[in-house]
Computed example of a mutant assay.
Amino acid sequence: MSKLKIAVIIGSTRIRRFADHPAKWIAEIAASRPELEVEVLDLLDYPMSFLGEASATDAENETAERWKKKLREFDGYVFTAAEYNHAPTAVLKNAIDLGEFIHKPVAFVGYGGVGGARAVEHLRLIFVEMSAVSVKTGIHISFPEYLSILKDGKTLTDYAHLVEAAKNQLDQLIWWGNVLKAARSA
């Protein structure tokens, strides 16, 4: 089978965001898999108005169309999911609402409160409604790991349980990606 094209989507646009760490880390691991072709998409490069907002400019509408067109290139997605107030970022939810993910697998690398678990659970429910398939294994970067990366110079690779979760998650993403790609082609 041909390689699966996977997007790693940076789900935060906040100043001094942590999202670049997990996005770069999971993209490097995924790129080392011979079954995958990986591209990182940064929501900073797609400034869009909120879905249905009457004050959307032509440029924002054009960006939303460019975003949707870009997403169609991929067979699956890995999202970095920051957790703020027990939920994913508004900019990520908006990008999902403006995108197309029908019959494609999605995976999550969460961070923040309880490793981003509550944000990831929100996203799983959203993607059911988007007719996408969420893989079982999530990657959850806990607060002590988060701090050790920012303050002590550690990397996510220093945590064996995160590396193991990444392997399992990508195995599942590849399996679902191949199954759904074949089904979409049939």
Rank of each mutant, 00 (worst) to 15 (best):
A82P: 13
A82L: 13
Y84V: 09
Y84H: 14
N85W: 15
H86P: 06
A87T: 12
A87E: 10
P88W: 02
A90E: 14
V91Y: 04
L92Q: 05
L92V: 13
K93P: 00
K93E: 08
A95V: 08
D97N: 14
D97G: 13
D97I: 11
L98I: 10
L98E: 10
G99A: 10
G99P: 11
F101I: 03
F101S: 01
F101R: 00
F101W: 05
I102C: 05
I102H: 13
H103E: 04
P105T: 01
V106E: 01
A107F: 02
A107T: 05
F108G: 02
F108C: 07
F108L: 05
V109I: 14
V109D: 08
V109N: 07
V109T: 09
G110W: 01
G110P: 02
G110N: 05
G112S: 06
G112Y: 03
G113P: 02
V114P: 04
V114C: 09
G115L: 04
G115N: 06
G115E: 08
G116W: 03
A117W: 10
A117Q: 13
A119R: 04
V120M: 10
E121N: 12
H122Q: 11
L123F: 05
L123W: 00
L125I: 09
I126L: 11
F127H: 08
V128N: 08
E129T: 05
E129Y: 04
M130T: 03
M130E: 12
S131Y: 12
A132P: 07
V133W: 00
V133K: 00
V133P: 00
V133Y: 01
V135T: 05
K136H: 13
T137P: 03
G138T: 05
G138I: 02
G138K: 03
I139C: 08
I139H: 04
I139F: 02
H140P: 01
I141H: 01
I141M: 02
S142M: 15
S142K: 06
F143W: 12
F143T: 11
F143H: 07
F143N: 08
P144Q: 10
P144W: 06
P144A: 11
E145Y: 06
E145M: 13
Y146G: 09
L147N: 10
L147G: 08
S148I: 07
S148C: 10
I149S: 03
L150Y: 02
L150F: 04
K151Y: 10
